[in-house]
C-alpha cells in the first residue's frame, strides 16, 4: 500500500500508516518489532474508526471521489463470474464510460451496467472520466432491452460526476438519450437493482438508476447537481461547495432518512478503497438478498410496485 493516498482529514492515520509500512519493510525480525507492529495496527484501526464515525458531508464527498475508490470494473471482477462485455449502441459508437455485459451472480445470469471512470491516465481518457455521451446511455438502453428480452435481471453501478457537457453530446441530443432511458427503465419488464457506488451526479447518474431497489454504499453521494455546480448556481460562489453538499443532503444516511434510497451498504473500515474484496462481498450479498425478494414478485406486481415507488417521490 505504498501508493496509498490519504485525504486531508486522514493526517493522523497517514502518520501511523507510514510508520507501519517502515516497520513492515524493516529487515530485522524480532519479537519486539512484531509487538510494535501489532500495537500500531490496533491504534491505526481505532483511529480510523474514530475519524470515519463522524465524517461530515464534505468529507464523505471526498471519500466518494477518492482516487483509489473501487470502480465498476473492480466490482464486476469480484462479484460476477464469467462476465462477457457487450459493446456499442448500434447507432453511433461504443462509449467506454459505461461498461455493460452479461455475467453470473451465483450462477444466475444477470445484465450488469455501470459507469467506469478509469484508473490510470490512459484509461481515464478512454473512459472520459466516467462522463457519458448519448451513445453511452443508448448502449445502456440497448442492453436493458436485451435483458428484458432474455428475462435477465438488470444490476447497475452508478459512479459519475455527470453526463459529459460537450458539443458532440448536444449534437446527438444528450437530453433525449437520458429521458429515453428514464422512460424505458420505468416499464422494463425485468427486475432492476441499482447500486450507487461512488458519485451519483445529476441526470447522468439517474439515466441508469431508475429501478426496483436503490442502494447506496455508505460513503457514496447522490445529488441533483455536483456540490460545486449547486454552489455556483445558488450561492454564486463555487467555493461554497461544502455548504451546498450539506444543504443538498447528498449522503446515504440523509437520503435513507427521506426515503430516496432503500438500503445503505456498509463499507469496510476507512472506506471501500481500503478493502476492495470486502466491499464487493457486501455488495454481492445485498444483491443476492434483494434479487431473491424481487424474483418472487409476478411481473405485473413488480411493474406496479416500481411505478408506485417512482410516483410517490415528492407527492
Amino acid at each position: 500500500m505504498s501508493d496509498e493516498k490519504f485525504l486531508s482529514f486522514e493526517d493522523p492515520i497517514k502518520e501511523l500508516a507510514q510508520k507501519l509500512s517502515a516497520l513492515r519493510t524493516a529487515s530485522v525480525d524480532s519479537p519486539a518489532l512484531n509487538t510494535e507492529i501489532q500495537s500500531l495496527e490496533k491504534e491505526n484501526k481505532a483511529l480510523t474508526k474514530k475519524i470515519y464515525s463522524k465524517l461530515d458531508t464534505w468529507q464523505i464527498v471526498q471519500v466518494a471521489r477518492h482516487p483509489n475508490r473501487p470502480h465498476t470494473s473492480d466490482y464486476i471482477k469480484r462479484i460476477f463470474d464469467d462476465f462477457d462485455e457487450l459493446h456499442g449502441d448500434r447507432q453511433f459508437g461504443d462509449d467506454a464510460s459505461i461498461i455493460g455485459g452479461i455475467g453470473l451472480l451465483e450462477n444466475m445470469p444477470v445484465m450488469v451496467i455501470g459507469h467506469e471512470k478509469g484508473r490510470d491516465t490512459d484509461e481515464k481518457l478512454k473512459r472520459n472520466f466516467g462522463m457519458t455521451n448519448p451513445e453511452g446511455y443508448r448502449k445502456a438502453k440497448r442492453l436493458m432491452l436485451l435483458a428484458e428480452q432474455f428475462s435477465l435481471p438488470v444490476i447497475t453501478f452508478v459512479d459519475t460526476a455527470g453526463a459529459y457537457p460537450g458539443i458532440e453530446g448536444e449534437e446527438r441530443c444528450q437530453s433525449e438519450a437520458i429521458a429515453r432511458n428514464l422512460a424505458t427503465m420505468s416499464e422494463l419488464k425485468t427486475p432492476i437493482l441499482v447500486v450507487v457506488s461512488g458519485e451519483g451526479g445529476s441526470g447522468g447518474a439517474l439515466a441508469i438508476s431508475v429501478g426496483d431497489h436503490l442502494s447506496m454504499l455508505e460513503y457514496a453521494i447522490y445529488s441533483v447537481a455536483s456540490p460545486e455546480a449547486c454552489a455556483s448556481i445558488i450561492w454564486r460562489e463555487a467555493d461554497k461547495a461544502p455548504e451546498a453538499a450539506k444543504a443538498m443532503k447528498v449522503s446515504s444516511k440523509d437520503l435513507k432518512k427521506i426515503n430516496i434510497i432503500d438500503e445503505i451498504i456498509t463499507e469496510p473500515l476507512g472506506g471501500a478503497h481500503r478493502d476492495y474484496d470486502l466491499m464487493a462481498e457486501n455488495i454481492k450479498s445485498s444483491l443476492i438478498k434483494n434479487l431473491s425478494i424481487l424474483n418472487k414478485l409476478s411481473l405485473d406486481d413488480l411493474l406496479d410496485r416500481r411505478y408506485k415507488r417512482i410516483l410517490e417521490i415528492g407527492s
Binding site: I178, A179, L182, A183, M185, S186, E187, S202, G203, L206, V210, Y222, S223, V224, A225, C230, I233, I234, M248, K249, V250, L255, I258, I260, Y307, I310, L311, I313, G314
Partner: peptide, 19 residues
Amino acid sequence: ARMQESMISLMQMAKTSAA
C-alpha cells in the same frame, strides 16, 4: 431540476417520464 429539493427534484425526471 430545482436545486433546493435536490434528489427529490432529480427523481421528478423519472416520475414525469414514467407517467
